[in-house]
Design a protein around this nucleic acid. Structure first.
Lengths: 343, 343
DNA sequence: ACCGATTACGCAAACGATTGCATTTATTTA
DNA sequence: TAAATAAATGCAATCGTTTGCGTAATCGGT
């Protein structure tokens, strides 16, 4: 049995023969308590290492002050981009006096709902979330808003809700990357992306298409595939390279896919980047490990996380109006390495 | 201004003309309230989506029940191994009804102390921690123990404290890996490790040394270096390959270092694994990206995290005696890929 | 030495929920 | 029908802090 008994103000008051109110005031350095008493009480507290009970404090203030706990929902944790975002959220939050309650949805709608309930119970002051892949109903999010808990989305945005959000500039990121491929002499550029039902999928595709148009190239549907992981890439790429006129470049929606392409292309005997150029999207751990190193669009997860936390805290503290949904776009940066030619 | 006013039992009581006590009992389905009233109250609560205030609940029960928040301190977040561990902790904790408060120490002692204070204030029921690299005083940890908050270490263990811990089997992991190198014909095996002041550094070195001895090889000090990152590896490896009799294999303390070695060795024109074999430690994202893919010791971070959470929850719930420090060792697994020959 | 103004402190009611005990009301028994 | 028993509800204290308001103590001024 833990004798978990912590020292309380009541104990101090009893020991020193004063009232609890006096102790409270003395500890908060209120001038309405004489300097002598204040110091006496403060010293006693220090010596007996008194620790204020945050639970009680919070209860007392629940009407006015929100808690300083931010709920963060992540689809997965072992994931470069999500880790970076979490890192950014942590940095921003902790430097502004907030702490994080982190939960992983495992890409499951059920779990996401459950987490929202839990967090509501635990009185987070707001929630930062990237939806699970199989989330298609949004009542759990709406319930949060109804309960007055502000919501900020990142990466995977809820299209049906006009909530605050921060995303990466998928359109321009892709546009720049594809333009770079074209500038370095590529003419037939394949696009491996996600389904158009995901916003990021659509935006990246549009960037690809518009880059082609801008440079007077035409879009060849047979070069566009839904493929967002390495295994699929390794399955799909060989067929594509057997086309009568195979692509001379690939743009992939993430580094993992790009690396799948790279490994196949190398195995088939093509030289990278001279015969085939490849560009990814993320700039994670993998990008500098493959040979040659991957040219890729840096997704700047840390920035995304910081912006998300900044919005949420603004919402909580009232510096940002709760009515208007704040939408921020983090600029990407093209990192040119060995899988593309230099301009 | 948020009218953050949530519905309380008092509201329900007033609306329905009963006492708060009745509402409380009805909501907890106590048989001492008539079935009719119970249902009436429960329905009213549901319709007005009443939500119990956990803060108040906790305050009331603070004497008996610990909170269900587990504090997790991580040196960094954008890190494969730590992410995996966090993932394991999350899975175990959430499945047992606990949630996580996560903070990053950034490898700073100051910050670590600060986080401990914060977590103590926020009434976590226990803390799972891997020390910051520059932590050399342990009074903040001792203060936690004194406050009755159980502590579990993972990965970077505090040597001065006899606290519960879970680590990976560094000794056997390295021993097996080096044995594998020897079995596949390597005779001069270099060791790139961390300083011996870190426990994991020492254990891995011992595994290396004993594997050599067991197979009748002698330890050549000139093949042992302190090097635990890619940049250093790329600096150190060329010199080593210029020795009169250069190594025919490298064991590196992590994948990152191993990949640094690999890139240098390939650049110098050696074939891997035939002329030079390489083995890492982690089995993270990078391991399957390099060419050839990396043979490495799988560190099983998820397991480590699960075990850590299991210990902590045991300590909190009293299934594990608080007096005895529980020490668990997670077995590693050698993953043989392309940077070593097959047996 | 007395009065008004400070100064220093205590009382008690919150915050929202729980729970032992007392009390009311309904039901059974003699 | 009265008394005894059982069922249903209310009262009030409690968890640890905070804070408006009241009051006792101290002080300066005349």
């Amino acid at each position: 049995m833990n004798d978990n008994r912590q020292m309380t103000m009541k104990d101090i008051a009893r020991e020193l023969g004063v009232s609890v109110a006096t102790v409270s005031r003395a500890l908060s350095d209120s001038p309405s308590i004489s300097r002598k008493r204040r110091q006496e009480i403060q010293q006693f507290a220090r010596e007996h290492n008194y620790f204020p009970n945050v639970i009680a404090e919070q209860l007392r203030h629940s009407r006015r002050n929100p808690s300083r706990a931010i709920g963060v929902i992540v689809p997965e944790l072992v994931h470069y981009y999500f880790s970076s975002i979490l890192d950014g959220i942590e940095s921003e939050a902790s430097s502004r006096g907030y702490h994080l309650i982190v939960a992983k949805s495992n890409e499951s709608y059920e779990r996401e709902v459950q987490i929202c309930e839990e967090m509501l119970k635990n009185k987070v002051c707001g929630i930062i979330v990237s939806q699970a892949k199989d989330t298609e109903r949004y009542d759990h999010f709406e319930r949060l808003e109804a309960a007055g808990v502000p919501l900020v989305f990142y990466d995977r945005i809820c299209p049906a809700l006009n909530a605050s959000r921060v995303v990466v500039d998928d359109y321009m990121g892709t546009m720049n990357a594809v333009s770079h491929l074209i500038d370095t002499g590529c003419k037939r550029i394949a696009f491996f992306g996600t389904t158009m039902s995901m916003i990021i999928g659509k935006n990246r595709f549009n960037g690809y298409r518009d880059a082609l148009y801008k440079h007077g190239l035409t879009l060849d549907e047979s070069l566009v595939r839904i493929c967002d992981n390495r295994a699929d890439a390794e399955r799909i790429t060989p067929a594509m390279m057997r086309m009568e006129t195979p692509p001379d470049a690939f743009f992939a929606v993430n580094d993992d896919t790009a690396i799948g392409i790279l490994s196949v292309v190398k195995r088939l005997g093509y030289t990278v980047p001279d015969e085939v150029s490849i560009c990814g999207f993320t700039n994670g751990f993998r990008a500098t490990v493959c040979d040659p190193m991957l040219t890729t669009v840096e997704q700047r997860g840390t920035e995304v996380g910081k912006e998300a936390a900044d919005i949420l805290i603004g919402l909580v503290e009232g510096t940002l109006p709760a009515v208007h949904a704040e939408k921020r776009i983090v600029k990407t940066r093209l990192v040119i390495r060995g899988t593309t030619r230099h301009p």
